[in-house]
Structure formats: C-alpha cells, structure tokens
C-alpha cells in the first residue's frame, strides 16, 4: 500500500508503462507464476516466448483481470497505479487491451452494437463524451477498410461464424478502435495459416506507435518474423529465465526450449 501511494504521487512520465514485480499467481492451489518480473515502456514491443505450460497465458490473463487467478505475492503497476485492485473494465478504460487467443462467439449481439457499447463504456469511464452514431460509423468503417474487414461481418453476431483469421482481425479492429496504450497479443498466430498471419501482423504493425507498447506472447518464432520485437523474454516454469534482443528468438528457434527447462 505504501508503495502504491508513493507511486500515485509520481508523475507517469517518470515511470514505466507496465511494471510486473515478483508476481506470484495460483490457480486452484497450484502455483503457476513463481516471482515473475517484467518492465515495459511506451513505444516498445516485447515478445514473451516459452513452452506450453510455462505461464505465458496466465500472465496475460492476470494483467487483463480474468477471474479465477489468485495473486499471492508481488504487484503489477500500470501507469504507476495498482492494476490488481481494478476491475477488468477499469483496466480496459485505462488502456489495457488483451487480444484473446480464442476470441469468444457472442450470438445475438451484433458486432457493430458490441463495438459501440464497448467504446462508449470506455469513454464514459474516462469522463469523455460518447461518440455520436455518424462519427462512430465513420471511424469503424475506416478502420475496417484498412484491415480488409467487409461490412457484412460487422452486422453479424460477434465472431459468430467467423474463420480463425477473421476472429483475429476482429481483435485487431478493436485494438485500432479503442486505441489502448498497452496491447497484449496472446498467441495471435494460433490457428492461422501463413496468409492470414501476414494480414493480422500487418494490422498490428500499423498500430505500433511511440504512445503504445505491445507484449506479444507466442510459442513459435514464426510470428516474430512479421512482428519484429525490441525485446524477447523466455519464460519457463512461471519465471522469465532469459531476456535479450530479437536475436534471442532466432537462437531459440535453433536450439529449442529444453536448455531453459533445466535452468528453471
């Protein structure tokens, strides 16, 4: 608490966008993250790599506020504020965006209705005025066109009947629309063929900005050929066991994760 108060008094410009410090997380009595630390600054793209079960997705879920995870130690600061005390919708309004590995289908809720409800909810929480319908439509259409998303997709239920690639593009559409300062991309490459992957990656690259940071979670190096990171972190057994530049990903591709499993 003392730390949180101290941070609140500091100016955000002086600190990192995201600071994960010694994070320990349990799911049903089993500890998944054992003291994970990670610092992300605006303008940076970080890749988190690791074998299945290393805790990559758990980290993304805990940052977004998914229920079912018990934080037993450590903290997460976002723009200097204690993220763990916030509800998922507060985190979203503050600028946290998780692109889901498996975006859910919501039958009966038209994509357009969903987008407008979400955008206006975030704006309302920040004390901003709601978008008027014509302004909103203009904005969505422009973003959709840049991502090759046809208008009829926007009229359908959220993700209902969408292909794997369309679901991922819908996530990127939301990312572009909500303009978050932190984007976490959870296994964006899963279920995508090479063409779909390229379209999605182009969409993400277009959103790279000095006012935004990205955390790209992936099992495979392949995605990082398209979204080139500034930093690469290797996770194993619930910790970051090695950090380095983009060359670390290539090293992993050649030698595999086995070396780190022992190190952890």
């Amino acid at each position: 608490m003392a730390l949180a108060r101290r941070c609140a008094n500091r100016k955000f410009e002086d600190m990192s966008l995201l600071e994960v410090k010694n994070l320990q997380v349990r799911v049903e009595e089993r500890e998944i993250l054992h003291g994970l630390s990670l610092t992300v600054n605006l303008g940076e793209v970080h890749a988190i790599m690791g074998p299945n079960g290393s805790g990559k997705s758990t980290l993304s879920h805990v940052i977004a506020g998914k229920p079912g995870y018990e934080v037993t130690g450590g903290e997460i600061l976002f723009k200097g504020e204690n993220l763990l005390e916030m509800a998922p919708d507060e985190r979203s309004a503050k600028g946290v965006f998780l692109a889901f590995q498996y975006p859910v289908e919501i039958p009966g809720v038209a994509t357009m209705t969903f987008l407008r409800t979400a955008l206006n909810a975030q704006r309302k929480a920040r004390g901003e005025s709601e978008f008027s319908t014509p302004d909103f439509l203009k904005k969505v259409r422009a973003v959709a066109a840049s991502l090759n998303i046809p208008q009829d997709m926007l009229r359908r239920g959220v993700n209902v009947g969408f292909s794997g690639g369309e679901k991922k593009r819908n996530e990127i559409l939301q990312m572009a629309l909500f303009e978050p300062s932190l984007c976490i991309l959870d296994e964006m490459d899963s279920g995508l063929d090479i063409d779909a992957l390229r379209v999605a990656a182009d969409g993400v690259n277009a959103l790279r900005s000095p006012d935004r940071a990205m955390v790209v979670i992936t099992h495979y190096q392949r995605l990082l050929n398209y979204i080139v990171p500034d930093f690469v972190h290797v996770m194993s057994k619930g910790r970051v066991v090695k950090s380095g530049g983009k060359e670390l990903a290539l090293e992993l591709e050649a030698s595999g994760y086995a070396q780190f499993e022992d190190a952890a």
Partner: peptide
C-alpha cells in the same frame, strides 16, 4: 463471455 465483454470496458 462476461469476461470478454468486461475486458472490452463493459461494467
């Protein structure tokens, strides 16, 4: 579904 919507800013 609830979490997905809340992660997008809905209370």
């Amino acid at each position: 579904l609830l979490f997905y919507l809340r992660a997008r800013g809905l209370s």
